[in-house]
């Protein structure tokens, strides 16, 4: 068997705000782990055999790894920008491949059908061409100049607007979405999707946001995102096959799927195949 190259990555395992001495039992790539606050106040994560796992706290979450991370957790410079509201959305359990959860997050063509009258609405279904690149220095997938008509793009948006997006994939199970921000032209709202791979076909999704929005009550912000993710879950749990195909021989990707194709190419190049299907069937 080849070594799981995703083993050395950082994965979210808990909300930092929910860390307590009692702890939370969860799993990472099939291995049972425990997350708690240690005597020194820092997060402590232990693996199945009781060994201490690497830990850090960032972007509202506790992160850990079963292997030996060669790099610190990716940077989100906007997270430290003053004036942003940081929103812990919580967790959504989804019976799907962690890679499928990320791919779905990168997809805009489903907005009118899955998030009807919120993120999209017929007849505004056309996906305009956008740009996708692999940024070699950071080794990240980026999609830019993504534009889509939205009836209600965010909690702070009144009425329909064409919203611009940028998507970024800095790690195989994490994605960051930058979205035009109605109250502050020139700035981007940040919405992230941090996925904890519990198994190849099961994941906990931890959305997190850093927004310029001082008005909307916190519970409304959380509720809005949770509604969106629950809609996505009904898709993710019903795609065949359950694993993410790296061979599109049984599929028909179009130009609208360019981000998905680039993401899968990037996974294939790095051998990030935990949760992937290698041969189409």
């Amino acid at each position: 068997m080849t070594r799981n190259t995703m083993i050395d990555g950082w994965y979210p395992v808990s909300l930092a705000s929910q860390l307590d001495a009692h702890g939370r039992r969860t799993a990472l790539m099939g291995e049972p782990i425990a997350v708690r606050r240690g005597e020194d106040g820092n997060a402590k994560v232990t693996g199945g055999n009781g060994r201490d796992l690497p830990t850090c706290i960032r972007y509202g979450h506790v992160w850990s790894s079963l292997g030996d991370p060669q790099k610190p957790l990716f940077a989100i410079p906007e997270a430290d920008q003053p004036g942003r509201r940081l929103v812990d959305v919580g967790v959504v359990r989804v019976r799907c491949s962690p890679l499928r959860a990320v791919e779905n997050f990168l997809d805009i063509a489903h907005f009118p059908f899955v998030h009807t009258d919120i993120l999209g609405a017929e007849p505004h279904t056309e996906v305009q061409n956008y740009k996708v690149e692999i940024r070699e220095d950071e080794d990240e997938v980026w999609a830019t100049q993504v534009k889509f008509y939205q009836p209600q793009a965010a909690k702070s948006a009144e009425g329909g607007i064409t919203t611009e997006y940028m998507y970024r994939v800095p790690a195989p199970t994490c994605s960051i979405l930058y979205k035009t921000c109605p109250p502050r032209p020139g700035e981007w709202d940040v919405i992230t999707l941090f996925v904890q791979p519990l198994a190849e076909d099961l994941c906990d999704v931890w959305p997190w946001m850093a927004l310029f929005d001082d008005e909307t009550p916190m519970t409304d912000l959380i509720h809005f995102q949770q509604t969106i993710f629950v809609q996505d879950r009904s898709i993710l749990e019903n795609q065949i096959p359950g694993l993410l195909p790296l061979d599109p021989g049984m599929e028909i990707p179009t130009r609208a799927d360019l981000t998905s194709v680039a993401y899968r190419r990037w996974l294939k190049r790095h051998g990030y195949t935990y949760g992937a299907q290698l041969v189409a069937q």
């Binding site: 028909i252 130009r255 899968r264 190049r269 041969v279």
Partner: peptide
């Protein structure tokens, strides 16, 4: 053009034993 785009999308990923 859309169909040739689709051909390009499919081929750029291709089967697992090729790298495009």
């Amino acid at each position: 053009a859309e169909l040739i785009d689709m051909m390009e999308m499919g081929c750029s990923l291709g089967p697992i034993d090729v790298w495009v």
